[in-house]
Every structure is written in structure tokens, then in C-alpha cells.
Design a binder for these strands. Structure first.
Lengths: 170, 170
DNA sequence: TCGTTCCATGTGATTGTATAACATTACAGA
DNA sequence: TCTGTAATGTTATACAATCACATGGAACGA
């Protein structure tokens, strides 16, 4: 895989496979920039930095880890600084919260409108984002039957990723 | 609906509808008792009390709310008391954790082996539990494609329940 | 019956996660 | 320039979860 080219797509939506990681960071930041420009949102230094921190790895980071890294880079170091930036990123689809971990991860396909589903490896703590068809899920039909109006969904699976499975078997 | 009879079934798996609530509590406790007897588990006073507290309403309760109620009834009042009982109930399928709320709710169908999905009303905070077919979900196919081994899933939808929708429209 | 073992409970202290409340600063548009 | 709004900074605090260790009681075998 060539450096600088996008290597995550909706067809291959996985954080587990080996890949050129510098592209993840640069692509993610560029996508966020253009999104914010298009929608008239302010992609401020703190917000940019937090997204950059999240893009560093395909793992979910707790707010206080992020806060530590912000401090190292001379940003404000009180909880609200991180939480506000995270709120911005999450509410505009540039990042997601992994409820199970109380932690945050950069969005893997920031362009597509999507209802993400996550696979969380309990051994190496990596997290992969997959797409779901929100209209066809069991939940959607249950909601329709009761008259419940869904606004957001969180779908998270915990288990063991392919790499760790292999290690364990050996 | 008649008092004392079970009024929640897998076919009508909803906490939103009006119903005879005393049955929920008694049925839930009875089901838990027989489950524990069958499996040789100890359904101790604290565990029973916590389940009873959860069964009181179709809402998710935070650990510290539960702790307050335990204190009122003369049980230990330090966090581990509640968390240990909750761990027991959750790990044996008698209660569920709602990750989105960091809170707990009694299981609505403690007999069926199930992969629950939840609908959380953001206005009245009621929570309904639905069944999902875990094998046919979008997540299951994504996991299969990558070789990810799912051990547990959390499916949670946030939105507005039928009752609150009606109020808002009016 | 005694003692051992295991499990459950009780308690204090600590760590991690998240928000409330309020002051201040940067910025876009009138 | 003025003004309203959004963003940031900071303090304090609420809520969630775990650690570590002491105590008590039921189950089981000697």
C-alpha cells in the first residue's frame, strides 16, 4: 500500500488489517478540514489536535489520555477542554464514542453518512469500525413496531480480533 | 391485565406500554429464584434486594442510586456492595448494563437466552428491551468477513418513546 | 465436632470519567 | 467600533468504578 493514498474504504472497513498508517492521519485531517469548510464549522487548533491524537491509532482513547497529550502540546489541560473538542468531533461525525470503553476514536469514514458498528478486541484493545444498514436491523423493526423514534444507535461487539486469535491458537 | 400474571413476553417485549407493574417485580424475583436454584447460584439478600430495586421501574439506575436505596434498607453502603451484586446479576443474565447511561436495568426476559437490544427514551429515560437475532445482524456478517470473534454485543438506540412523542406533538 | 476453605460481605481509600458554573477571550457581522 | 455569539480557560464537584484488606458464614471433609 502506498503512502499518502487513502486505504480505508466502506468496502474494506477495517482497522485490524495491516496498512500504511500515515495515510490514516493525513487523510483524516484533510477530510475533516474540507468537511468543516463546507459546513461553515470552525476547525480550531484544539479540535484539530484532538482529532490528530485520535487518528494516531486505531484504538479508543480515554478523555484523560487525550488531556495528557494536549498538555504536552501546550493546550489547556482541564477536562472540559478535551470534552468540548470531543463533543464537537462526535456531533459532527468526525469521531465516535465507544460507550463500552468510555473512550473515543476517530471516524474511519468521515465522508459517508453512516450508522457505525464497532468491533472491540478485548486483548489488544484495537477497535474496527464497520458500516451497518440502519434501516434493516432487528432494532429498527422493533422500534417501528412500538412507535419508538430512533435518533442514534450504538452497536458495539466485544471479542477477539483476527491477529489476537492467531496468537492465542499458536 | 390481571395482577400477578406475567405480562411481558418475547413477542411483546416492551417497557413502554402501560401494564400491571406489580407482576414485573414478583415475576422477576420468582424467575431469578428458580434460575439460581437450578444453577446452584446463591441468591443472597443483597443480590435479591438489588434486583428488586431494578425491577421497580423500567428505567436504568446508576450504581449510586442503587447504593442509596440499599443504605435505606440497612445494607452496606460502599460502592463495591452495589457493584458486586450488579456484576452477579449481569453475568448471569438477570440484569443488563446500559453502556450509554452507565446504568443498570433488570432483564425483561430472564428465561430466554438472548442478545438484547435497548431503546432508551432521552426525555423520560425509560428503557425497553427487545430481542435481536444475533446471527443475522450486519455486525455478525462484518465480523465473519474479518475473522473477528464476537463474544458479547451491546445494541442501544437513543430516541423518543411513543408516550413522549405524543406529548411533544400536542 | 472441629477446622479448613471458599465465597460473600463490609469498609476505607483511591482512581477514572464527566459536567456545572462562571470568567475571559476571539471573532464575525451590523 | 460595537455587539452578540462561539470558543476557551479554570475551579470545583458529581458520578462511576476499582483496589486492598478485614470480617463472617455456609459447605465440606477429616
Amino acid at each position: 500500500m502506498t503512502s499518502g493514498s487513502s486505504n480505508i474504504s466502506a468496502q474494506n472497513p477495517l482497522g485490524f488489517a495491516r496498512h500504511d498508517h500515515t495515510a490514516c492521519v493525513t487523510d483524516g485531517l484533510l477530510a475533516a478540514e474540507s468537511r468543516c469548510a463546507d459546513e461553515g464549522l470552525r476547525f480550531t487548533p484544539v479540535r484539530r489536535k484532538v482529532l490528530e491524537i485520535l487518528l494516531q491509532d486505531h484504538r479508543a482513547l480515554g478523555a484523560y489520555v487525550i488531556l495528557d497529550r494536549l498538555r504536552e502540546d501546550g493546550f489547556g489541560s482541564q477536562p472540559p477542554v478535551a470534552y468540548r473538542a470531543l463533543d464537537f468531533l462526535v456531533s459532527h461525525g468526525l469521531a465516535h464514542k465507544i460507550e463500552r470503553l468510555n473512550a473515543f476514536i476517530a471516524c474511519a469514514h468521515p465522508n459517508a453518512i453512516h450508522a457505525p458498528a464497532f468491533m472491540i478486541c478485548r486483548l489488544c484493545e484495537s477497535v474496527a469500525e464497520a458500516q451497518t444498514e440502519s434501516t434493516r436491523s432487528a432494532l429498527a423493526s422493533a422500534a417501528k413496531a412500538t412507535g419508538f423514534q430512533i435518533e442514534r444507535t450504538a452497536v458495539e461487539a466485544e471479542g477477539v480480533c483476527p491477529a489476537c486469535l492467531e496468537k492465542t491458537d499458536a
